[in-house]
């Protein structure tokens, strides 16, 4: 390789390395701002600010959904399997909302540690499967560990 080209190549590589370090440090410093939501462990540990609009995310705990019979009010626990936070919400839930499903709630944390949401988004994972396979898996897990009351049913809209 020609010495001039070698020199140019080193300059380019140094530029790239410097840039990556700068970006890595910046994103590391801003990681809490880049995170879309606080998870329940962070909220119970008091890391989330009170009375500020934040997002909370996690799984809807099995058997925790309580729907008000007269209004659109819903209460449930959102969990990351270490801690859980009670959430209350008035409004229409997304189609994918179900017990055992991931959600992201937007709203404020009040002083009693309850999360008052004004918007709820459904989060799904990267697993896709036909309904029949999901049913079969469901049955297999039910017979495997005795039938649990109120376990999540695969929502087929």
């Amino acid at each position: 390789m020609h010495p001039i080209r070698k020199k140019r190549l080193t300059i380019v590589l140094f530029l790239l390395a410097g840039l990556s370090i700068a970006v890595a440090l910046t994103t590391y410093a801003l990681r809490q701002n880049i995170n879309l939501f606080y998870d329940p462990s962070q909220i119970t540990a008091g890391e989330a600010p009170l009375d500020v609009r934040i997002r909370a995310g996690g799984m809807v705990e099995e058997g925790s959904v309580k729907r008000d019979s007269e209004s659109l009010k819903v209460e449930f626990l959102v969990t990351d399997f270490n801690a859980s936070v009670p959430v209350e919400y008035v409004g229409i839930l997304p189609d994918l909302f179900a017990e055992g499903q991931g959600i992201v709630a937007m709203g404020k944390l009040n002083s009693e540690g309850r999360f008052v949401a004004d918007q709820i988004l459904a989060k799904h994972d990267e697993n896709y499967m036909p309904p029949e396979v999901a049913d079969a898996l469901e049955k297999a897990s039910l017979t495997g560990e005795q039938s649990m009351p109120g376990s999540a049913q695969p929502a087929t809209n």
Partner: peptide, 14 residues
């Protein structure tokens, strides 16, 4: 392709 157990047919956008 079969539909998805959770999202139904909207996943076909994938």
């Amino acid at each position: 392709a079969p539909k998805d157990y959770l999202q139904g047919n909207s996943y076909r956008i994938i």
